[in-house]
Design a protein around this nucleic acid. Structure first.
Lengths: 269, 269
DNA sequence: GGGTATTTGTCCGTATGTATT
DNA sequence: AAATACATACGGACAAATACC
């Protein structure tokens, strides 16, 4: 048992939460009530509550009180099933029976032209300074913020005839299909790198993350390749880490998810 | 610009860190110095520092001072390359040139017999109450804690002749190869589910995570299947989220990593 | 809409404990 | 042993957000 008083208070409250004595969404006693209950100062109570907040067990709402965190049904994204933007193999978590397929919707992209540098140049295997197109989209599920996605393509694709890439509108069917249709560039595979990091300001704002720094974001960097082995695109997608999970199938895996092994489909994440 | 004073102080310090004015490992002014510099009370300075801690920008060391967090070179684990326990496709991050292959070492397993219930029963497709073997191992890279792994197998494997499963020692070559050799049970594929959550006490202790709740853990649940489509094992592995990344290859991906697409190898994670 | 009570957020000052050098 | 630096705990005051009448 840790000795600081605020930790003991926190452990006691945690036990009440984890035992179910306090259920999801329930309000805790107010700081003043806890102050009397534990015979501690209000600041010490607040330290205990901060400790619970840091572990995602409770949240405070100014003017209302302190509440046990509600349960989250994470979205599950299948990484080896590459669908067009705005559609996808996304499910709610839960038992097999309650699982529901979800259909994402994407905003029109914000287009920017960058010069490849550092990491980006290495990942797309371009000379430093080469022009690249950046297509940035907000993606929603049930009209709730779900992910932020930026795809980067060599600018040369435009000169070769893929003019839609620099148009600020969604490409129905996805960019990957478009590139194959127009340029004959075929995506034959990709590599995903999955990591977790604190959100930047844009992400915190879009996802509505609390500003206490507790919720991090998944960052998935997908480098997709052409038949020649040349990178075709880099797509960076971020998701709030507290309400998303990812699934990968390797080899032969029995049905249930619509993901025959070893198959390659089209576009993002 | 946020108005609370502690946030303004925090933003100012953050800017100094992110601009490089304060480098990795550098010591910040002491609380008393900051108190004079910003003309605030020590408690307010401490609130600012706590905000920086919550974002992983600094750490405090009692008796020493406050320091900018050192840089971490994450380990990169290739999820579609299933190696034997204690070997594996694990790399340091960084540019292609500085990347180094790492070889994990696993402790002897702690063996437990459980009854399948709830999630576990569903995932292994066993009746509730069926006996399962739990093999729990600590895994190290360069003798530093790297991951905790628990593999669960149906108890029936033992009756059918796989007695090594309930021996508290590592099985050279991996359990998957052992099961194929002894029982003819062949692993043909698997499904990984990747999520992030706060560490439990065991994990926090083993990984040496700070008790401020900032560092979460990756949890990777791998259900591996036999040719018949029946689950063969459930392996749950956890990694500190601040120093691990994961890579997945789908379809055809050019060399560099030793992972020809569509190949299936042996055992964990 | 306005006013009031409730509840958490910010800020201050002080004292003492504990870890490190 | 002494000095330094962060950690814990107390108390008080006022601000800001919310709910309710």
């Amino acid at each position: 048992m840790p000795d600081p008083m605020y930790r003991q208070i926190a452990e006691d409250l945690r036990q009440k939460i984890e035992s179910g004595e306090l259920g999801h969404g329930d309000q805790l006693p107010t700081e003043l009530e806890l102050r009397e209950e534990y015979e501690a100062s209000r600041n010490t109570i607040r330290d205990a509550v901060k400790w619970l907040i840091a572990r995602g067990l409770v949240e405070t709402r100014p003017g209302q009180g302190t509440f046990v965190m509600g349960e989250i049904e994470p979205y599950v994204t299948v990484l080896d099933f590459d669908t067009g933007f705005g559609q996808g193999a996304v499910y709610t978590s839960g038992t097999q029976a309650t699982r529901k397929r979800k259909v994402p919707r994407a905003s029109d992209p914000r287009i920017e032209i960058h010069q490849a540098a550092g990491n980006l140049a290495e990942e797309l295997r371009l000379e430093e300074g080469t022009a690249v197109i950046s297509r940035n989209q907000q993606r929603f599920i049930d009209d709730k913020p779900w992910s932020l996605q930026t795809s980067l393509y060599p600018m040369s694709f435009v000169a070769r005839g893929a003019g839609e890439l620099i148009q600020a509108k969604d490409i129905p069917g996805g960019v990957v299909r478009y590139l194959e249709d127009v340029l004959g560039i075929k995506q034959v595979g990709w590599r995903d790198k999955i990591s977790v990091r604190p959100p930047d300001q844009t992400e915190a704002l879009f996802f509505g993350l609390p500003d206490n720094g507790r919720v991090e974001v998944f960052e998935i960097r997908r480098i997709a390749f052409q038949d020649s082995g040349t990178p075709l695109r880099l797509t960076v997608t971020t998701f709030p880490a507290d309400r998303n999970e990812f699934v990968v199938h390797v080899g032969r895996v029995p049905g249930e998810m619509p993901t025959p092994a070893g198959r390659v489909d089209e576009s993002g994440p």
